[in-house]
Design a protein around this nucleic acid. Structure first.
Length: 586
RNA sequence: GCCCGCGUAGCUCAGUGGUAGAGCACCUCCUUGGUAAGGAGGUGGUCACCGGUUCAAUCCCGGUCGUGGGCUCCA
């Protein structure tokens, strides 16, 4: 059995106590001091405390190695043992500028030049002085439980046009115990990595021969995906959505009209057929718009909800690709809803309810965020303001808390993003609801209102799970590969103990398959212990074991994923149990 | 795309300037065993790809592709 996962309350930003933040910030300074002592030519940039520890960015041409980290860690311990006082000093910006200029710390000088205040503070420990707002520990002594974790590149001030610096990540805690717990937590995170489980459970692969960011689903992965999609189709039909299907390639003229060509071209793939340019769809909205446009619409028809499990292709930068979480071809549970302005509020409420229902089924917590007008946008500022107001009004009316993410909307409209939180507290953006006045204008969409005048509908773009690929990746990690019964690609493995029961287990298998249960048969010439072990490794929820006893009683024994057993029970009883779990999605 | 690391059998990984090894998996045989690995034998690799240095490259150098940790960007 796997050890239980330790969830660290300190992982969550809002929970990170001020004390811990100060400790980590001071540890980052301690690291910078050690680095400066060991590598005198290094220039320091910035080094804050973060959710899970701290980092410091350095400018060091040869770059650090993994061995350097050990050396730095040793030096840090030495300095900490000396219990050097950490002294705060307030000085005029001009003075501070002189100091850092003399030290040759051009990054600090650059930071100073951006500070508006007349006075700044510096912190000094030993020969190391840093420009810093603080606060810090009074001395280096209390810094005991820390570890340097990794090396990374990071742009100066987070801008890709700037110089690439070397970042060292580390973590620090109040005591060894808490540090060890955190390190153990990191090990657990690695164990539930969807890329690792994807391989272990034989769900999917990504092949360098096929191409980066392109997922190949193996039978059980494809089945898992099918189950998720089946769930989605049913849920959408229940909620008044209609299925539509659009093509993968559309003429470039369509993308020019939609604004994608001007605003999203870097992310698109293009091809040419008989001298006509086509774009491979990065979004599904254009086809859905064409369905709307295919005939005259009455105000009575609205809202029209078009749903498609739409596969899109986007040129993501090579460095961002990551298992199922970030890929170049993925399928969205995408819908476009065409409606009157007076229906907007209610429709958004319905979508949020939809999201909440789904989150509950998978046991996710979530947070909401509103993203507003970006620099690159289509449509008018008035429409944007109107749309942003509707989104805020809905969340306010529902009493749902949210953050504002300024300038992060899609180019055609503002959005509500839902960030779900998985079993170990990590946040993932999946659902998004985008309010769009611009595309109806661009495509000249209209409906005939009760006064027989033509009016412009509004469009909502929305996804619930987001991208199937990403959601699957999140699910794999959320459940640590132990999917609930209704989502398990294989629900039952049926195994005999000796050849004598082969016919018997086969009849149980036939019955299960007939009942729509996803069963597998293991009649290999192997010991029971071996069959159980393999089934446990595959994280299958149920094993049916039938030996001489069961065959004589016309019964089965069931071993559950947690190791507990149901001895000598009736097959029908068990079939009903799984049926029930399928229906109630447990 | 950028910085750093990595790429050896299906998987997890050793290893060496003189063309390779383990465990698991797979195949064959023995074993019919009651809740996490029964035993024996065997198959399997252009050491990611392309080029360079060298008498000789899986190993050293360069490039490409892929991948990992990050940065930037995002469903």
């Amino acid at each position: 059995m796997e050890p239980p996962l330790v969830v660290m309350p300190q992982e969550k930003e809002q929970d990170m106590s001020k004390d811990l933040e100060i400790l980590r910030h001071s540890t980052s300074h301690l690291m910078a001091q050690a680095v400066k002592e060991l590598f005198s030519e290094v220039k320091v940039a910035i080094g804050p405390a973060i959710e899970t520890g701290f980092y410091y960015d350095f400018d060091y041409e040869p770059g650090f190695t993994e061995e350097d980290l050990l050396k730095i860690e040793e030096r840090m311990k030495e300095i900490a043992r000396k219990d050097l006082p950490i002294e705060r000093r307030i000085l005029k910006k001009k003075e501070a500028r002189e100091i850092f200029l003399t030290l040759g710390e051009q990054f600090k000088v650059e930071l100073l030049d951006e500070i508006k205040d007349e006075e700044v503070s510096t912190y000094t420990q030993g020969a190391f002085t840093d420009l810093c707002r603080g606060p810090h520990l009074p001395s280096t002594g209390p810094i005991k439980a820390f570890k340097l974790l990794s090396l990374a590149g990071a742009y100066w001030k987070g801008d890709e046009k700037n110089k690439m610096l070397t970042r060292i990540y580390g973590t620090a805690f109040q005591d060894e115990d808490a540090l060890n717990k955190h390190l153990q937590f990191l090990e657990e995170v690695k164990k539930r990595d969807h890329r690792r489980l994807g391989k272990e459970l034989d769900l999917f692969s990504v092949s360098d021969e096929v191409g980066a960011g392109l997922v190949i689903y193996h039978p059980n992965g494809a089945l898992l995906r099918y189950l998720l999609e089946d769930f989605e189709r049913k849920e959408h039909l229940k909620r008044g959505y209609q299925f539509v299907v659009g093509p993968h390639i559309l003429k470039v003229d369509m993308w020019k009209r939609s604004g994608h060509y001007d605003n999203y071209r870097e992310n698109m793939y293009f091809t040419k057929i008989d001298d006509v340019d086509y774009g491979i769809k990065p979004m599904n909205c254009v086809s859905h718009i064409m369905v709307y446009k295919s005939k005259i619409r009455s105000y009575r028809d609205l809202p029209l909800r078009y749903f498609e499990l739409g596969t899109v292709c986007r040129h993501e930068k090579s460095g961002v690709l990551h298992g199922l979480m970030r890929v170049r071809e993925f399928t969205q549970d995408d819908a476009h809803i065409f409606l009157r302005q007076d229906q907007l509020h209610q429709e958004i409420v319905s979508i949020i309810t939809f999201v909440q229902d789904v989150m509950k089924i998978f046991n996710f917590e979530y947070e909401m965020e509103i993203s507003t007008r970006p620099e690159k946008f289509i449509g008018t500022v008035e429409d944007w303001d109107k749309a942003e107001k509707v989104l805020k009004d809905v969340l306010d009316a529902q009493g749902l808390p949210y953050d504002i993410n300024e300038g992060d909307g899609a180019f055609y409209g503002p959005k509500i993003d839902v960030k779900l939180k998985d079993a170990i507290g990590r946040k993932w953006q999946c659902a998004t609801i985008q309010c769009d006045f611009a595309l109806p204008e661009r495509f000249d969409l209209n409906y005939v209102d009760s006064d027989s005048k033509r009016k412009r509908p509004v469009m909502l773009h929305r996804v619930i799970l987001g991208a199937i690929e990403r959601f699957l990746g999140v699910l794999i990690e959320h459940y640590s590969g132990k999917f609930p019964v209704w989502l398990s690609p294989v629900q039952v493995i049926i195994m005999n103990i000796t050849d004598e029961q082969e016919g018997y287990v086969r009849s149980i298998y036939d019955l299960m398959i007939h009942e729509g249960i996803r069963a597998e048969l293991d009649t290999r010439n192997e010991k029971l212990g071996m069959k159980i072990r393999e089934s446990v490794v595959k994280k299958v929820p149920y094993m049916i074991i039938a030996g001489k006893k069961e065959m004589e009683n016309n019964s089965i024994s069931v071993r559950l994923r947690d190791g507990s057993e149901l001895k000598d029970i009736d097959v029908k009883t068990f079939v009903n149990r799984i049926r029930e779990e399928n229906i109630s999605r447990r």
